[in-house]
Design a protein around this nucleic acid. Sequence first.
DNA 1: TATGAATGAGGCTTCATTCAT
DNA 2: AATGAATGAAGCCTCATTCAT
Lengths: 222, 222, 222, 222
Amino acid sequence: MTSTPVPRTQSTPDETSASVCQLRAKREQILQGAEKVFLASGYEGASMSQIAREAGVSKGTLYNHFDGKASLFSAFFEERSKTKLAAIEAISREDGQNVHIVLRRLTESAIKMMLNPTSMDLYRIIVGEAGKFPNLADAFWRYGFGRTLHNLADWLRRRSDAGELHIEDPEFAAEQLMILCQARIVHRRRLMLQVDDSPEAISLLASRTADSFMKMYGPRHQ
Amino acid sequence: MTSTPVPRTQSTPDETSASVCQLRAKREQILQGAEKVFLASGYEGASMSQIAREAGVSKGTLYNHFDGKASLFSAFFEERSKTKLAAIEAISREDGQNVHIVLRRLTESAIKMMLNPTSMDLYRIIVGEAGKFPNLADAFWRYGFGRTLHNLADWLRRRSDAGELHIEDPEFAAEQLMILCQARIVHRRRLMLQVDDSPEAISLLASRTADSFMKMYGPRHQ
Amino acid sequence: MTSTPVPRTQSTPDETSASVCQLRAKREQILQGAEKVFLASGYEGASMSQIAREAGVSKGTLYNHFDGKASLFSAFFEERSKTKLAAIEAISREDGQNVHIVLRRLTESAIKMMLNPTSMDLYRIIVGEAGKFPNLADAFWRYGFGRTLHNLADWLRRRSDAGELHIEDPEFAAEQLMILCQARIVHRRRLMLQVDDSPEAISLLASRTADSFMKMYGPRHQ
Amino acid sequence: MTSTPVPRTQSTPDETSASVCQLRAKREQILQGAEKVFLASGYEGASMSQIAREAGVSKGTLYNHFDGKASLFSAFFEERSKTKLAAIEAISREDGQNVHIVLRRLTESAIKMMLNPTSMDLYRIIVGEAGKFPNLADAFWRYGFGRTLHNLADWLRRRSDAGELHIEDPEFAAEQLMILCQARIVHRRRLMLQVDDSPEAISLLASRTADSFMKMYGPRHQ
DNA sequence: TATGAATGAGGCTTCATTCAT
DNA sequence: AATGAATGAAGCCTCATTCAT
């Protein structure tokens, strides 16, 4: 459309990038439809027609962009794991602060992270379909829990080296902390059980969890 | 159908109990087929034909005993939650022993319980289908985790009252203990991730978990 | 419904045979629909919906009776080969007659047989689909051409033994005779070419074919 | 069609011929893809995408050059019948030789011709699709069997006129000869039946076929 | 003119459910 | 109460064809 005044060989790259853009856009459009439907109905419960309708494309277009239902599901899941799963990053900035205080902030944000609707839905999906799509759990772990664990373990190691904590196995301790955060609220919500997830309840839980962790790995006579 | 003219009404109870027996037997037969298929394929993935075949009855019989697929699924899930989910019971017998030692036994058996295939499958199913069958999670909680939590909290309260532990909120502490047991192995297995679940690994994990708990709630200068 | 006054164990056989009868009837009904559609459109061109409609059953019923399209096609083809392909049988009854005269009758009936619409359609189908269903050609040969060849070779051998013909390889001679019958009319009709297949044309062709065969294998100075 | 009365018009012809050339080349390219796919899968079994891929052009180009699938199929079939169907030509060069010897060469080359893979595939296609494309058989006949028949009949007429054979109806005799060549091997191969088509088997069959023909039309006391 | 993404009809098949026996 | 054949809706996927670029 826009004729470039540049002498030559500009058109092909333009065309290419334009069409690639369109392609990506359509792909993204489909993935959004897929997300909506898969999260609501699971893999088996979702239908390609539904996804096509939700994405605003024809059924055929689904198959132009993905090899089939399983392929679309995998793409959706990996894509969303990559972009939607938050992780606790850059705790290093907190290094100046008192350990216990940082821990409280940490536990609270971890709990909120895990309560995030997309995280919960992805967790439910992957647990339900892990049998059919074993490789997807890797993605879920790598981009979500695993990443957080890694960052957390690093921070714990540094704090331990600094003598503020006494931790022999930071990886394990990190996992203990993260899993303790799931008590009471996260764990129950995964089962769709009624639970008080008000900010106050979360704050209280975070606090008690941080306290517990300090008892486990803090200085002896705190 | 054909009521026998015999005087006392002795026969009817007999017949009734006999036919009730038969009914129950058939119902149980169906539930066994349903269990096999639902656990293997999930709710959407299972087919009534498959269940009928596996149960050794005709498809029509399924509908004589249950209202439909959803109804059969609910029945299966509640039934199996009731009978197949183990809980840590009668820890009271251990009351004479040293707390730390009992805790080690406890954590180990809890981990093994949660790794039990049926427990894992039921967990996966309920998490996967919680959106479609929100009421089922109650059963799962009541007969599984909840029951264990309750028993465990009782025991902790008694030990705390005896001065062997210092626990303010035994329910919460019980949940912390149970959830700590899921670190490293149980949590990963639910996602079908590769994990070392050898007896040695389990034993080590149980031991470290018990130690952590003692740090949290044990006497200060142990 | 109809309570039989016969003492015992009569009902089950009745039920069985009744339901078996019904089953066979439905199967036959489907096969008739399949025949119509497959003969008209070939294997790929036929659709299961069309067949169901033509047979007057639902699409699902097709799959209760056959494993799928390929299976239904095979069943249709073998069934029809068995029952619809005529063969020249019992030529032995003609043994008293003059060879040349019998041959003329033979060639005429062979030509008519091969021009029979069902034979032609089955031939077209099997040639078209032989790549996809190699085993079906066997059935077609066994019940059609092969059977005729066998009977014919027997008869030729007897006539040869009687000195009325001089044939060293009756199987080959039989095939030569049958194939000569395809000249002019049958061969062209298989390609849907326009051809004069009036009784007179057939009769003339039959006569000339018999003459030719007599030249090949008849007494030298006839 | 349009004979150009214009004297010079040199430039336009150049352009025209160049683009016509390109057009023809692309058309030929498409036809080659079509050939590969139609021969392998039949009309219904072939897909336009497959053809486009095989031809190395886009699907859209197919529709720029042909009206649709049916049209492309017709073009492919006629084109290939014209160019790929061999015929027995120029037997006249053999005129000096002994009839029986020439016949043996003839039958052998005829059998080999008919066993040629492309011939067989085209035959299978046309027989299978004759119902849908009745007009195509003409092309198949005209360029294949029909042409051979014509040449052969000419030769037989000459030999008959020369007194080496006694044939009243050379057209019919030619067809008898060609059809006799199909016994045993060609006929069976069209049904994909197992058959010995070794050079020796073909040679023997050719020889016996020639002998048979000589008995039919050769000098009486050969 | 060439491209290939988009379309939507239609193909094969499965499945929950019903119902006559 | 048990059976299982029949149903038809719905699922996944393919394909000939169109059309904007």
